[in-house]
Design a protein around this nucleic acid. Structure first.
Length: 588
RNA sequence: CGGGGUGUAGCUUAGCCUGGUAGAGCGCCUGGUUUGGGACCAGGAGGUCGCAGGUUCGAAUCCUGUCGCCCCGACCA
């Protein structure tokens, strides 16, 4: 039990000026954190207690899933990263930690970096320590600090430069075994979020810079989230916007309507889809082909979409380039023969097709019959263009951004969209890292194989804030039992009365024996201040002892989630309190 | 990194446009009256007006630079 007057809970009446969203304001007002600098926070005692609750539950679920806890350095030799597969892609988010820093960013190669995650540390470790199939599978995890030089830290702990994360890494003999590990972790995640009272859903996600073959994000639905989740109530389909697909596309590769004769026509000054939609041309956007030029690892390639569709850049990741970017007009002209606005992929119109790394078309263009596209001649377009007859396509794929209302790929019902906060992410990595670091094992046939890896992360601080975002009211935080910094707050309205404090302490002991953690508000404050603070810090149970109640022979008991106050006769108070604690634990 | 904003006491802020002794509320300290949903009275402490230049007799205020912070975009747990 803790006495408030001896503890440290600096609550604030007013919201800090730099806090925009409810959870960030409450984090600061309830005395959980204080800011040191952009994206850097001190966890005050109350905040630390919540973090410890979350890490302990996380640890239990990881161990239940068979993962083994260890602790790795946070300062990594830069060589580890230079050897790994994502040095180029990841270096801008890494802080460098040099012994002889000259203060000039990027002026030379760093000696050390602060770890944003630990694949580059765990993989070499496993490579040197595990060499036999007999020692697999293994899954290692740690709960520790991560450093990322976020371009724009935001929303308190939501996007911080230094943050606490659980990260785990699985090593298996083959793909089926790795998928088994992946599903065990997915189940462990679901158990973790359920136990801490965060309503999180698993959605299909893009693998991004991590690489790997598939992945799920765990999202807490919230208006302030950074990600769009596309989902279908009917089928349970849920995917990150970057990954989401719909059932728009026909199965057979045939032209959508009888093909008319290909015909060139002049379109002076027309360089946008919208301009071609307007009179006198009046070509609907879904009857146009949009041709985009990108550079993949230095070589140009084309992406063809319907005029009405948007490219989802993340989906270009499927093409296997390390780095992609849009091409500039000066890069485009020598290859295509025209500048943006008059581009197309009709056979024979591209000036220098040999320069291209490929022509990738979205499946949806198969819906376009007798469409219009650029002639690769500035100021000219072609009409009656048909996919099978006219277009050069290396490969069809899914490249367009899905819109809400399109049919669900599973049920065909309209897809919906909502915002979410990403609190966890799991990846099936494959052999990308094990091959780079030569983490191989020998099987029972004396054959050597790269280990198949998975990696997994849970943002602990982000989860804490997501819980607040999801569980608060106008008065303050409403903690779920298992995440609460304390379970019972005993408000002593007249702490100067010895019998009041004695009663408070005996009730606290009873509650502790029933399994609660107890905070006693023994401050010499007016009742109003104590009640406001009690609601603000959001402890699930509140017992109130006042001079008035003592005369009547009662103690009051109230749940943070309810308005009603129960009046407990003194003789029953301890037992009723213990029963309430048992109820809180049972429901958690 | 691009665009927008902002910096005044521990916190929330007024003053800046139109240059002339830096103001309030909360919090804090002292005394008193209060005491069941952020009390009241009296007194008090606390500010290099982010920093550096410049203009001016005179700068929180105008100009230049710089740094921090916040918001919108791309990235992430």
């Amino acid at each position: 039990m803790k006495l408030w007057s001896q503890y440290f809970i600096p609550t604030l009446k007013e919201s800090p000026a730099d806090a925009e969203i409810a959870s960030h304001r409450l984090l600061v007002r309830a005395g959980l954190v204080r800011k040191l600098g952009g994206g850097l926070y001190t966890y005050l005692p109350l905040g630390l207690r919540v973090m410890q609750k979350l890490t302990q539950i996380c640890r239990e679920e990881m161990e239940r899933a068979g993962a083994i806890e260890l602790w790795m350095p946070h300062m990594h030799p830069a060589e580890n990263w230079q050897q790994g597969p994502r040095w180029t892609a990841a270096r801008e988010i890494m802080f460098r930690a040099d012994s002889s820093g000259d203060g000039k960013r990027g002026s030379r190669e760093p000696e050390y970096v602060l770890g944003p995650t630990h694949e580059e540390v765990i993989t070499p470790l496993v490579k040197s320590e595990i060499t036999s199939y007999r020692d697999l599978p293994k899954n290692f995890f740690q709960i520790s600090t991560k450093f990322r030089n976020e371009i724009r830290p935001r929303y308190g702990l939501m996007r911080a430069r230094e943050f606490v994360m659980m990260d785990a890494y699985s090593f298996d003999v083959d793909d089926p075994a790795s998928i088994k590990s992946y599903h065990a972790m997915k189940a462990a995640y679901e158990a973790f979020f359920r136990r801490v009272g965060a309503r999180a859903i698993a959605v299909e996600a893009d693998t991004g810079v991590m690489g790997g073959s598939f992945s799920h994000e765990f999202m807490v639905p919230a208006e302030i989230g950074d990600d769009d989740v596309i989902y279908c109530e009917e089928s349970g389909y849920a995917a990150n916007r970057e990954k989401a697909t719909s059932a728009l596309v026909p199965k057979d590769l045939v032209d959508a309507e009888p093909a008319g004769a290909l015909e060139e026509f002049a379109t002076p000054g027309i360089v946008t889809i919208a301009a071609l939609e307007a009179a006198p041309y009046s070509v609907a956007a879904d009857k146009q082909f949009k041709t985009l030029v990108y550079i993949g690892d230095g070589k140009p390639f084309l992406v063809v979409l319907r005029g009405c569709d948007e490219l989802e850049e993340a989906k270009l990741g499927a093409l296997g380039f390390m780095l992609t970017r849009p091409a500039t007009p000066d890069e485009i002209e020598p290859v295509m023969g025209a500048r943006p606005g008059s581009l197309g992929t009709v056979n024979g119109t591209i000036k220098n097709p040999g320069a291209l790394a490929g022509i990738f078309a979205d499946h949806a263009i198969r819906l376009v019959g007798n469409g219009t596209t650029g002639a690769n001649k500035d100021g000219f377009h072609l009409r009656n263009v048909n996919v099978v007859r006219d277009l050069a396509v290396t490969k069809f794929g899914d490249f367009r951004r899905v819109r809400p209302g399109e049919p669900c790929p599973l049920s065909g019902k309209p897809l919906q969209v909502r915002r979410g906060i990403e609190v966890g992410h799991i990846f099936k990595l494959g052999t990308k890292y094990s091959e780079k670091f030569n983490a191989v094992y020998t099987d029972d046939q004396k054959q050597s194989h790269p280990m198949v890896m998975g990696c997994y992360g849970i943002g602990i601080g982000r989860t804490m804030q997501a819980i607040i975002e999801q569980s608060h009211d106008a008065d303050g935080i409403v903690w779920p039992w298992n995440a609460a910094p304390f379970h019972l707050l005993v408000c002593v309205l007249d702490p100067q009365l010895p019998e009041a404090m004695e009663l408070a302490k005996s009730l606290a002991v009873a509650a502790e024996q029933a399994g609660a953690e107890v905070l006693i508000d023994d401050r010499a404050e007016r009742p109003g201040v104590k009640f406001k603070d009690a609601d603000l810090i959001g402890v699930p149970l509140r017992a109130t002892i006042g001079g008035k109640g003592l005369k009547e022979g009662i103690v009051e008991l109230k749940w943070r989630t309810q308005k009603e106050v129960a009046k407990l006769p003194l003789a029953e108070a301890a037992a009723r309190l213990a029963a309430a604690v048992a109820e809180g634990r049972a429901k958690a």
